[in-house]
Amino acid sequence: MAGQDHDGASRLVAMAWGLAAAPQRGPRRELNHERIVEAAIEIADAEGLAAVTMQRVARAFDFTTMALYRYVSSKDDLQRLMLDGIAAGETWAVDDEDWRAGLEQWTRIMVGCYRSHPWSLDIPLARETLLMPGQVRAVDAGMRAMRSLPATAGDKLGVLMLLAVNARGFASLGREMAREEADDVLATRHLLQEIVADGRFPDAQAVIESGAYFGNEGPDGRDADDAEDVTVALSLLMPGIERAFEGDRRAQERAAAPADPARDPEQALAAAEADLASVIALRKATQRRARDLEKREGRVRADRDRAKVRAKETAKEAAKAVAKKASHEE
């Protein structure tokens, strides 16, 4: 593929796929766009997207800004490569036998990706970005998660768009809610609760007064677990997706249609390798989850044991009090 003629194709997309020729001249011929993108992501993770300038990235490699332009033609291109880079860095471990579980895992990976790199939400989505390897890998994982869903490829792509929009929206909202704008967050929330108490907003009053309007907040007024919002959203979306296809007359035709295009032996081997890598990633993710649950079980069990001891002590004290009262009455 690298030797094929790609005249007319986007140089940025070809670069993302490793098909664009490296510059013939440069301070370091061994440098490539992957290393440049990695450095840019490190800067963004540490200091935010605004800190990522061509000059700053060039300085990370100890060469001039003009030299960097030989590899990446603009700051916009660099940001698009960064956005694709964080998607390419995910393992995308999803269940391919239960589409509900698979799509839930896929959505949580999407949300987690944005939350790990919140600056990515500031990069506008572009058509070219969707053609890059990280995004194609994400789509491939999503389609793999829906192998058991009786739907056409177009329908499945629509489901992924729905979930992707929700994932980006939840991550964006979570970031905005988490911003430390002032020290009087709780006071401001109490102010709003007092305002709605006069009945001007009768249908919103209950949810605001209960505190649910502000999220699941901790003692300092910040969200304690905004993942709960994603759980609620998925619990609402999944039944809708299922119902959209369960009564469709084309469902059987979809399910009976060939799942894979015709492949030559080399393509079949590549697909088999991808399947194996996916299963291994899912197995490792499941094992990590199991270990986390074992640790959680230990903490919960310890809490239960302490509660049991307190309950026994309380029961003994109560029994003593009853016995003492009875002896006094005698």
Score class of each variant (00 low, 15 high):
residue 1 M to Q: 06
residue 1 M to A: 08
residue 9 A to W: 09
residue 12 L to A: 03
residue 17 W to L: 04
residue 18 G to V: 06
residue 20 A to H: 07
residue 28 R to Q: 14
residue 29 R to G: 05
residue 29 R to V: 07
residue 31 L to P: 09
residue 33 H to T: 13
residue 40 A to G: 10
residue 40 A to K: 01
residue 44 A to C: 10
residue 45 D to K: 06
residue 48 G to C: 01
residue 50 A to H: 10
residue 50 A to L: 09
residue 52 V to N: 02
residue 59 R to H: 12
residue 62 D to Q: 10
residue 68 L to Q: 11
residue 71 Y to D: 07
residue 71 Y to Q: 10
residue 72 V to N: 07
residue 72 V to S: 10
residue 75 K to R: 15
residue 80 R to Y: 04
residue 84 D to Y: 01
residue 84 D to W: 01
residue 85 G to N: 07
residue 90 E to S: 12
residue 102 G to D: 05
residue 104 E to C: 07
residue 104 E to L: 01
residue 105 Q to T: 02
residue 106 W to K: 00
residue 110 M to K: 05
residue 111 V to L: 01
residue 114 Y to M: 01
residue 117 H to M: 03
residue 117 H to K: 05
residue 119 W to S: 00
residue 125 L to C: 05
residue 140 D to W: 01
residue 143 M to Y: 00
residue 145 A to K: 02
residue 147 R to I: 03
residue 150 P to H: 03
residue 154 G to W: 01
residue 155 D to V: 11
residue 158 G to M: 05
residue 161 M to D: 14
residue 162 L to V: 04
residue 163 L to D: 04
residue 164 A to S: 15
residue 166 N to A: 15
residue 170 F to H: 11
residue 171 A to Q: 01
residue 176 E to Q: 02
residue 178 A to K: 00
residue 185 V to I: 13
residue 188 T to S: 09
residue 191 L to D: 12
residue 194 E to N: 14
residue 198 D to C: 11
residue 200 R to G: 15
residue 201 F to C: 07
residue 203 D to K: 06
residue 204 A to R: 03
residue 207 V to H: 12
residue 211 G to T: 02
residue 213 Y to M: 04
residue 214 F to K: 00
residue 222 R to T: 00
residue 225 D to L: 03
residue 232 V to W: 05
residue 236 L to F: 06
residue 238 M to T: 08
residue 242 E to C: 02
residue 246 E to S: 13
residue 246 E to G: 00
residue 248 D to V: 02
residue 248 D to H: 05
residue 250 R to K: 07
residue 250 R to V: 08
residue 251 A to K: 05
residue 254 R to H: 15
residue 254 R to T: 09
residue 256 A to Y: 03
residue 256 A to L: 13
residue 262 A to K: 05
residue 264 D to E: 10
residue 266 E to N: 08
residue 268 A to S: 13
residue 274 A to N: 09
residue 274 A to P: 06
residue 277 A to K: 11
residue 277 A to L: 11
residue 277 A to W: 03
residue 280 I to G: 05
residue 284 K to C: 08
residue 286 T to G: 11
residue 290 A to S: 13
residue 291 R to T: 10
residue 305 D to S: 10
residue 305 D to L: 08
residue 311 A to L: 13
residue 318 A to F: 08
residue 324 K to G: 15
residue 325 K to H: 12
residue 328 H to K: 15
residue 328 H to L: 14
residue 329 E to V: 13
residue 330 E to D: 12
residue 330 E to I: 11
residue 330 E to M: 08
